[in-house]
Design a binder for these strands. Structure first.
Lengths: 341, 341
DNA sequence: AGTGAGAATGTTAGCGATAACACTACCGAA
DNA sequence: TTCGGTAGTGTTATCGCTAACATTCTCACT
């Protein structure tokens, strides 16, 4: 490693000595300061290369008071939605020259979110993105005095921090209207778990579309996002195959469970019952039949959340409490058709 | 915020003044040093609470030379495998009192991995986990002089760093033997992309099981892990429905594509062709039919990689080049059955 | 040649914490 | 009483870097 630094990793002073300049000049080269002679710059760069010098960002962060690291608080990053969002955030952050530190919560509650945020602030992150899809998590955003920029993803109507989200209600409306336009009398719904804001937005949009069209609003079935819960709801619906002709399921995984239940019970999709899901996971296109669903652009959500965060970082006191809404898209495939088709 | 620190966040000296002690005593309280009188300790804690003081971990890291942060380099964390592994790593790290900084690579190559590692070292991480499922990524581990502990997940037979991995070949053997034991004459295989070590381990295990049983080794079909590539391979196989009775597919997503292709072509599973997948994603149980597959315990992989890393951190010079192999499990479901069943 | 503006470089003083050592009490043993 | 040991606390130096200011050098213009 270091040619002549006695085993320990070289520091700026070692480079300075090797290049015959002061450590400040090395710092200037590293920070692209304009007032450095080209010849000096290259001598410094050579010395850096020779010694294998790496800047100590910790020391730098101490004096600049910026770590160029952003914190992300999320919940169960093995789920497709959170995983995609976090991925989008990480990519956008890196493109902007920032690092990302992640805290994945096992269970979500006010205390957990608050601790995670404090934890990240102690670490010296410059800003925090909270992927807070549950009401309880969003609640935690209300009682904090961060002193640093925070943005929530899917964070409900919190008044404390800016929010970036997909228009869940609009997505549900697209799905429901699509089924109504196909000629279905009404549309049933399997919703996501109680505490989730996304689940509630989707219920709201579905209900809104039905009442706007003056249709009956069937009783809501409940799931927990898992294929199994969809399967169970599907078994129930299969028993009402005459009555039910269209179902809007709150996510694609549950839709898969519904499809499985229908297959087992001999209910044909879409001939007897049409299904529309939500998320457009990579698998949905290859379900049997391929699933009509609502696509969420998680990448856009990630990018916007970083934009908003960096905006706050630069504006400083501006503290814009914007609400950035990403529109969803309907993707029509084989699982939806006119009734009795 | 700070009651009397003039707007800026309080520092240790402010707490010291408020509690009427020296800053060193505050530090001792914070670090649970034994030689502090109980009364003093509580006075300090009170002052901390009063001022809303939070320790500056950046300054701490500078002097202790430990950040209690680990770096993770991964590839496409929206895929189930990497996402689950990273999740396991994050949980294990946090349980051990460490933070996690993530770099998700978009494309994987030597330079990308090397840069990511350097990037993390500059940030002052105490150790790095490289989730390096491709040969090219694993290669990057060979030409680095990190100076800090590194462990590879699925990193091949690299001699430079310890490796934690799932026994891919063994999983493939389980899958293949299962199909042979059901009475199939031989087993076809749809492999994963060329550069992936996991894909190669699975091919190897499949081929090994067939030759051990003295069976013909059919030509290998290739996919890229995506459902679409499985679909395309499935179309091909469907055309040989007489000849082919069993297929071992290198992952569950491709299996879904195969199932879709077979459904379209009227090939019944498992009656005409049996299918076994790999990964046991949450969806597989609800495929039609439910997929027989090989489960990988990603959580265990994450935990072990952290164990190995922390081991290196504590041992220091020990530099044990262990290789930790997590055994896979066969999960039998409806997609596999005796031929012509 | 003398001057002054600006470019190029050096010097010093922190950032906020811990480490190392110094010091004061207070204790029991000699 | 004196001494050594230790618990409790304070003082100073230091981690590796950048900010702010100080200094030198260069060159166009008088």
């Amino acid at each position: 490693m270091g040619s002549s630094t006695g085993g320990r990793p070289p520091v700026m002073a070692d480079v300075a000595k090797a290049a015959g300049v002061s450590h400040q000049t090395v710092s200037r080269v590293l920070n692209d300061h304009p007032n450095v002679r080209a010849e000096t710059r290259s001598r410094v760069l050579e010395a850096i290369d020779l010694l294998g010098y790496r800047r100590n960002m910790v020391a730098r962060a101490l004096v600049t008071r910026h770590s160029r690291t952003l914190g992300v608080v999320s919940f169960d990053t093995t789920l497709y939605g959170p995983a995609s969002t976090v991925y989008g955030i990480e990519q956008a952050a890196r493109d902007a020259g920032y690092f990302v530190s992640i805290v994945s919560l096992r269970t979500i509650d006010r205390a957990g979110v608050r601790d995670a945020i404090n934890y990240l602030i102690e670490q010296g992150v410059d800003g925090i993105v909270v992927v807070a899809p549950q009401r309880s998590a969003a609640g935690a955003l209300e009682d904090l005095s961060p002193g640093i920029p925070i943005v929530a993803v899917e964070g409900g109507h919190s008044v404390q921090v800016p929010v970036v989200c997909v228009d869940q209600a609009e997505g549900a409306r697209l799905a429901t209207d699509h089924l109504l336009k196909l000629g279905h009398e009404t549309v049933w719904h399997i919703r996501g778990p109680q505490d989730w804001l996304e689940a509630e937005g989707r219920v709201e949009g579905w209900r809104g579309a039905l009442s706007a069209a003056g249709r009956d609003i069937p009783e809501v079935l409940s799931g927990d996002w898992s294929p199994r819960s969809g399967y169970e709801a599907g078994k129930l619906l299969a028993g009402m195959a005459g009555e039910v002709t269209a179902v809007f399921v709150a996510n694609d995984q549950m839709s898969l469970g519904v499809l499985r239940a229908f297959t087992e019970e001999g209910v044909r999709v879409p001939e007897q019952i049409s299904i529309v899901g939500f998320d457009d996971i990579p698998e949905s296109e290859f379900f049997s039949p391929p699933l009509t669903t609502v696509r969420q652009d998680f990448g856009a959500v990630g990018r916007h959340s970083i934009d908003v965060l960096l905006g706050q970082l630069e504006e400083g006191a501006a503290k814009v409490l914007e609400r950035f809404v990403v529109p969803p898209d309907l993707v029509v495939r084989g699982s939806s058709a006119p009734p009795g088709a």
